[in-house]
C-alpha cells in the first residue's frame, strides 16, 4: 500500500489522567496510576477493582444540553476527545464542514449501553425496548453523535477490530486522504468501562486485577481497566499549520517483529495482559529502547491511539523521543505498527 505521511495537527485526550495535554503532562510528571475504583458484585460479596475512569462532566462545554440528553458516556467521551483535538489545532469546535472525515476506532463499542439494552430485552421479554437505548447500543453511536454535535457532513466510519482498531482506523484515514475524499480526518479511539467488563476482570484475573500495571512483567496479569478517548486531527503532509509531527507509516501485519526495526524507540502496547506478553517479550529482547504508556491510561483495546498521542506530546514537552514506532499486538499475534517522527518539520 502507498505510504503517505499524515501530519498530526491536533491532539485531544480524555482519560483517567484527566482531560487534555496539561492533565496528561501533570500525570507524566507525578506518575501514572488508576484514579478510581469500580464495584463488582460477586458470589462472595462486593469487590472493588481499580480503574482509570473519565470524568465526562466537561462535555457541556462542547455540546448543547439538548443533544447531551440522548448521549451515553461512550459518546460523551468521543465528543470530549474530538473537541479537545479541534481546540488544540486551533479549529472551531463546530466543524460545519463536509471535507473532514470522522473515523472512530473502538475495541468493544458502547458496551454499557449494549448490555443494558440486552438486559432490557431479557427482563421485558422484548415487548418494549427503549429506542434511545437501542440507538446508543450500536458501535457507531459515538460517531453519529459526534457528527451531529460537530455539524459535520463528511464521511463518517466506525472501525471495531479489538486491539487492531486504531491501526485499522488509521489505514482508512490515510486512504481517504490519499483519494482526496477529504482535506483532513478527525481520527479517534474510544473505549469504556462497563459492569460486564468489571465482572470479566474479576472472574478472569481474580486477585491479580487489583494492583498497578507492570507493562514489562510478561508472565503476571497486571492489567487495570482503562477507558477514554484519544483523538488526532490528521492532514496530508505539506500543510504549513501547527503540527506535532508525522505518522510516517501504518502497517497491520502478522509477520511480527521481523517488520520492526530494532534500533528504533519502541512504544509498546504492553498493558499488563499476559495473553500478549510473549509477543512483547520476544520483541523487547532485540529492542534498543522501549517504553509503555499504559500505566498512564490503563488497559484498553484502543490503547495504540493513546500511545501515538502521548508519544507526540512527550516529544513536544521534551520528555520523549523524536522518532518512535508504536507496536500493538492482539492475542492472536496480529500486529499494528505505527511509525512516527515528531518535531516542527512535518515533511
Amino acid at each position: 500500500m502507498t505510504e503517505m505521511p499524515l501530519v498530526i495537527s491536533g491532539i485531544g485526550l480524555a482519560g483517567g489522567f484527566g482531560l487534555g495535554r496539561e492533565a496528561l503532562v501533570d500525570r507524566m510528571n507525578t506518575g501514572g496510576g488508576p484514579n478510581g475504583m469500580v464495584s463488582v458484585k460477586t458470589e462472595s460479596g462486593e469487590r472493588r477493582l481499580p480503574a482509570y475512569q473519565v470524568d465526562v462532566s466537561e462535555v457541556i462545554r462542547f455540546s448543547p444540553r439538548g443533544a447531551l440528553r440522548r448521549m451515553n458516556r461512550y459518546a460523551k467521551m468521543a465528543v470530549l476527545g474530538a473537541s479537545l483535538a479541534l481546540e488544540d489545532a486551533g479549529w472551531d469546535t463546530t466543524l460545519k464542514r463536509n471535507d473532514v472525515g470522522l473515523v472512530i476506532a473502538s475495541g468493544y463499542g458502547a458496551s454499557e449501553s449494549t448490555f443494558d439494552f440486552l438486559d432490557s430485552m431479557i427482563v421485558d421479554g422484548g415487548s418494549c425496548p427503549s429506542p434511545t437505548l437501542f440507538s446508543n447500543s450500536v458501535h457507531s453511536s459515538a460517531a453519529s453523535h459526534l457528527s451531529i454535535v460537530l455539524q459535520s457532513g463528511g464521511p463518517c466510519l466506525t472501525v471495531s477490530q479489538f486491539e487492531m482498531s486504531p491501526v485499522s482506523g488509521l489505514l482508512t484515514a490515510r486512504q481517504w486522504l490519499l483519494e482526496g475524499r477529504v482535506e483532513a480526518v478527525l481520527f479517534g479511539a474510544v473505549d469504556e468501562i462497563c459492569p460486564v467488563l468489571s465482572y470479566c476482570y474479576d472472574r478472569f484475573f481474580g486477585a491479580d486485577a487489583c494492583g498497578a500495571i507492570e507493562p514489562f512483567t510478561w508472565d503476571k496479569q497486571t492489567a487495570v481497566m482503562g477507558e477514554g478517548a484519544a483523538f488526532l486531527l490528521l492532514k496530508p503532509a505539506g500543510d504549513a499549520s501547527k503540527s506535532y509531527g508525522c505518522i510516517d507509516s501504518i502497517r497491520w501485519t502478522r509477520s511480527r517483529e521481523e517488520a520492526i526495526s530494532a534500533d528504533c524507540n519502541l512504544v509498546l502496547g504492553a498493558d499488563g495482559h499476559t495473553c500478549y506478553g510473549r509477543f512483547y517479550r520476544r520483541l523487547s529482547k532485540r529492542a534498543a529502547n522501549r517504553t509503555s504508556y499504559a500505566p498512564l491510561y490503563g488497559s484498553l483495546s484502543g490503547g495504540q491511539a493513546f500511545d501515538v498521542a502521548i508519544a507526540a506530546i512527550a516529544a513536544a514537552e521534551g520528555h520523549g523521543a523524536e522518532r518512535i514506532t508504536s507496536v500493538k499486538y492482539d492475542a492472536r499475534g496480529s500486529c499494528g505498527i505505527i511509525s512516527c517522527h515528531f518535531g516542527s518539520d512535518p515533511r
Binding site: G66, R70, D124, S127, C128, P129, S130, P131, T132
Partner: peptide, 17 residues
C-alpha cells in the same frame, strides 16, 4: 416541555414499564 417524536416512543415504553 419540548418532547419530540423519539420521546413519544420512549414515553410509550416508560408508561408500559
Amino acid at each position: 416541555l419540548g418532547l419530540d417524536s423519539l420521546d413519544a416512543v420512549e414515553l410509550v415504553v416508560v408508561v408500559k414499564r
